[in-house]
Amino acid sequence: MLFQRFLTIISLVSILSLTACAAPTNPNSAPNAQAPVKLILGAYTTPREAYSKIIPSFVAQWKAKTGQDVTFEESYQGSGAQSRAVVEGFEADVVALSLEADIDRITQAGLITHDWKAGAQRGMVSTSVVAFAVRAGNPKNIHDWADLTQPGLELLTPNPKTSGGAMWNILALYGAALRGKVNGVAANDEAAATQFLQAVLKNVAVMDKGARESITNFEKGVGDVAITYENEVLVGRQAGQQYELVLPQSSILIENPVAVVDAYTDKHGTRAVAEAFVAYLFTREAQEIFARYGLRSIDPQVAQATAQQYPTLADVFTIDGQFGGWAQATPKFFGDQGLYTLAASAVQE
């Protein structure tokens, strides 16, 4: 009887999925300058609000310039998941991701064939820094990395295995310690930095799947501090959240890449509009929108104009400068025997 019930449920589910598959797909019309064109954007979740403003303004500009209508199909999910989806056949014309390593994966799959870092900004469309969200009034007096080891403090940071954002967090913390910017931790001492990493990990109460889930949990009242991107905190505050932003004196510069996916744009015949869209993202107009939604601008003039909102940190380092790029940092920290992996297991013993 129980099994009959299961069979009913299973057959219902399969009927549903069959129906979903049978939905008509858009016929792939031949590229034509005047025919409407569809552009597929595969992005990570953070800049969603910014793109909701940038896209309409690009559409209007493209229409005025070429007379062609562009419609956008937008997909937002975790950077790593998005990048894997593209590799596995999600035909995004343009990808906007959280870290370079996720673009590299698409390049290695042979889908991006041009040198996407050739431009003046090396393909990085916005930046941010790793920062802290604390409760209104900062009741636990959190001002810098060293404060995160207070006994009994509850921290939120996502799981580095599933979240690019979490990798930034761990590297920011470790880098700051290594550079001698954490009180009580000697500079250039890997053992001391690892020990500091363990002390912070000891206070982690929840590890969510992604940066968004983590900040959502913090908004629900879980934890005293969330380690996250500066822009997540700023966007949350814009949406009326009461938590506050704390910038540590030393942090890692998060650089967010965009690229045209050659294989898919050529297949769709959308190269011209895809390249124009990526170029548009670097214009002052688009950069101002990014800055409005919590992201630091890569345009020097926009950056200067918004310097009040985005104070310069005493010490900022990059993944390339401090850790020799993702290709080296990922196995060194997050592999089977990586520094983070070992520290995380040591903490609970």
């Binding site: 295995k161 599933t162 109460a205 929840v206 590890m207 089977d336 995380a344 903490v347």
Partner: peptide, 25 residues
């Protein structure tokens, strides 16, 4: 809460390994 070695179950661990390209694990 998914803390490794404390409250991370096998299914959640598997997701982590999939997402970090460790298909074998």
């Amino acid at each position: 809460g998914n803390l490794p070695m404390f409250s991370q179950t096998a299914a959640v661990y598997v997701l982590g390994e999939v997402e970090s390209e460790n298909r074998l694990a």
